[in-house]
Amino acid sequence: MKNFMKKPLRKKVVIVLAHLFLAVLAIFWLIPILWVVLTSFKGTLGSYSATFFPTSYSLQNYKLLFTDFSAFNFPQMLLNTLIIAVANCLISTFIVISVAYSLSRMRFKGRKKLMNAAMIVHLFPGFMSMIAVYYIIKLFGWTGGSMLRVAMICIYAGGAGCGYHIAKGFFDTISYSLDEAARIDGATRFQVLRHIIMPLSKPIIVYTLLTSFAGPFKDFMLAKVLCGAYSDYYTVAVGMYKMLEQEYITKWYGSFAAAAVIISIPIAILFFCTQKYYAEGVSGAVKG
């Protein structure tokens, strides 16, 4: 602040204006979030309200989510998503780390071809293969069964092999002389990976674990295509989308906001954790 006082008047005005501008923008960005938090505590039913922010507050929207299972079984949805998220995060991390390590540390025939293929696959609407899997599931009559869950995990994790870029970038920063030293001492490639690279890669492994865990909580498209009308297998995203449909909106509007708050808090925390690990990962492990 001492510096600020010393500046010429014109500069002071510009600085104050810049801060005001940022404040206005920040309000624009934060208002919807504030709105949904307040709406989740709304005391009245229905989507219509005569004021921007609710006038009376209660906890009934949250209570409804965990007690009324007539239309939506919210705990079940949470459990569904959690099962898929845990399985996906374990398999995906294994896949991503394997692919990234191979592409970063090993030189073999077809390496470039694999990377190009991954890029080309990425240009197709991801959704096309989802629809195809949906047909296949429908074809075999698996739509109502637990195969649905298996299919979702398989598609989330199966596609993980193409998302190796960040982890590969991390492995690229680890000095190759570490590998060479270990190889001279007689370590096999696998031992190098297991005892030298893995301990150095904690930030990127945690990053991959966290992001792939959050994936199913954030994804809407695949779950919507696959679950269709089978409410037993709804993930949170599909369930929340349903709550806003014509027939449910009056009763569940406030609960939608409540569900949004419940889901967003852990995911936001996870996100800020990943940012920390991401920063650590990008800045590299052992340089030199």
Binding site: I95, Y101, A118, G158
Partner: peptide, 20 residues
């Protein structure tokens, strides 16, 4: 390391794409 991931991509992404 790559056989499992490549199999995953082929079975759950590429073959469905071709099917479609």
């Amino acid at each position: 390391l790559l056989s499992f991931p490549v199999a995953g991509v082929v079975i759950f992404t590429i073959l469905p794409l071709i099917f479609m």
